[in-house]
Design a protein around this nucleic acid. Sequence first.
DNA 1: GAAGTTAGGACAAACGTTTGCGCGAAATGC
DNA 2: GCATTTCGCGCAAACGTTTGTCCTAACTTC
Lengths: 337, 337
Amino acid sequence: MEKKLPTIKEIARRLNISASTVSRALHDHPSIGLRTKMAVKKLAAELNYEPNQTAIFFKQRKTFTIGLVLPNLREEFFSAAINGIEDVALDHNYIVLIGQSHDDLAREQKLVETMKNHRVDGILASISSSTTHIEHFEQMKNYDIPVVFFDRVPDAKDIHSVSCNLYDSSVEAVEWLIRNGHKRIGYLQGPPTLNMKHERLDGYMEAHKKHKLPVDESLIVSTNLSVEGTRSAVDALLQLKKRPTAILSFNDYVTLDAIQYARQKKLAINKDICFVSYANVPVTQYVEFPPLASVEQFPYDQGVSATELLFRLIDKKVAGQESPYENIVLKSELIIR
Amino acid sequence: MEKKLPTIKEIARRLNISASTVSRALHDHPSIGLRTKMAVKKLAAELNYEPNQTAIFFKQRKTFTIGLVLPNLREEFFSAAINGIEDVALDHNYIVLIGQSHDDLAREQKLVETMKNHRVDGILASISSSTTHIEHFEQMKNYDIPVVFFDRVPDAKDIHSVSCNLYDSSVEAVEWLIRNGHKRIGYLQGPPTLNMKHERLDGYMEAHKKHKLPVDESLIVSTNLSVEGTRSAVDALLQLKKRPTAILSFNDYVTLDAIQYARQKKLAINKDICFVSYANVPVTQYVEFPPLASVEQFPYDQGVSATELLFRLIDKKVAGQESPYENIVLKSELIIR
DNA sequence: GAAGTTAGGACAAACGTTTGCGCGAAATGC
DNA sequence: GCATTTCGCGCAAACGTTTGTCCTAACTTC
């Protein structure tokens, strides 16, 4: 059953010409006569010839493949980002290798390693929540594989990245709450590794400062994103003698868990307590009590932007040029329901 | 900046031995002496040698890559299926190329074409809703690339597939509704291309037959899965003089739209009208009125099973053996909330 | 000590494609 | 009609690895 796929050599043999001529003919190289060009193309079509990409990859040192490493696909944010990534990649005739870290550093490392072995031309990454260092990404420099981080960007200097400005929208979100009469606003943050740039927290602080509201440290709690983590964090807030009337929380998924827990505790959502969040994932439209507002982070645009940056880096690499580190910041937008 | 990655040749040159010896030494070939073996490994480690996979792919005619073509990643069903696929693939030291058809036949064709060019070792596919023929998949036979369909399986003979038995659970679902007193049960089906095997409909019919209930054709409507399509289909049901008291609907996403529409029409969910559905996606746990029951289709297991089948096919292909067409059917399960 | 065995490694081809170089013949210029 | 350019194409190397075959020296065996 070993079907022998037609090769350039085969065409050359049949036409009694050399392989190089065939190659050039197929590429419309100017130094090939029209007659041979026609003959080659005709036979190629008849034989259903298709170039062996693995041979080309090998020779050209390019695979027309980009690697995508992200925490998971379950979150609508990431699946939306992929749409942008895939669209740009397909435009460039590239295809996407995917890998989910499931927020596990070891798995993330293995994925990067595997992608390196596959000689991807570049890597897009959103780091896992347990990623405490990024050596595995930095090593890619030794292989001339550019890396662009998006959304979950590590707090390091010498990297390329695309992310949303969450500072401004965090200020805006908290101000919105303040304007709506809230004076005690809780902040439910994510795990430390994802807060390294603490844009959200800085925005939270700034809004308090602007409105001369004191910041109560006990109003700031953390979750590791798990249901239990979120519950105990929310619990800590609800146990306070002076409980917050509103909570700004890490993202919509966390918020859904938080709301569920608050309801379980017999709190009236949007009366006893309000929620404002990040991500603005579409699925919240179906739930009874969605967050009152959520910061749209434009995953599709982030994906597009990151992929375009990656291709610029790949092109420069091919041209042998050095690229300065680029850190693109897109703006986010507070969506009020 | 052209970093020269170390190669076998380089190691051979430095050690004044031949490349073949180096290759064999690295592979612990028995005909290489311990001394040279050690020397080679030592130098390889020092130079940080890593085999150039593209060269190996080229030579071995294998890429250790499988292609995955599916409608979209937004649906939790597919992102859950990927988890199974990825886990099995990683176990086999394979990596996954991904492509979303977005329910567009042309895009699906392009993706398959691109994956073929990348010489993937096999393809996993869940067809788009606009896929009216599967020539593009059948052509893969000419390239010795096995294809395994999962979940959304075309209605054809000569294919490999993994899917859920929806007939039994459909009977069960409708019987459950009947036992709960419903006599007029609507059926909101998906687009024709996805109903080719009409397991759901057959089950719906069978349950009616078993309970000697007449089937009213006007209770059977279709949606193209879009929000508008679903709304007008539901509308048709609600307009009936004798409106159904329950609706069995294509999947949870459709159901969420349907429920939203019904509420908009001032119907009391679970009183005026009940919903039972397929997929059992986790996100329904956060909504106010989830479907009363949903058929779990075990996406992770489907992914695992499909990928394992694919690897069996790949192995047989390598061994030059012919494989009979396998159509694995997993059972589904009606989950009652 | 001669014949046979074995261990250890070299050589070269092969996978399919691309590309720099060069060469002969036709076409052009005067 | 000779010199020069242009055109069309072939030759061979190269990418990095694997693998079948062959070779040589050392070792065994009697």
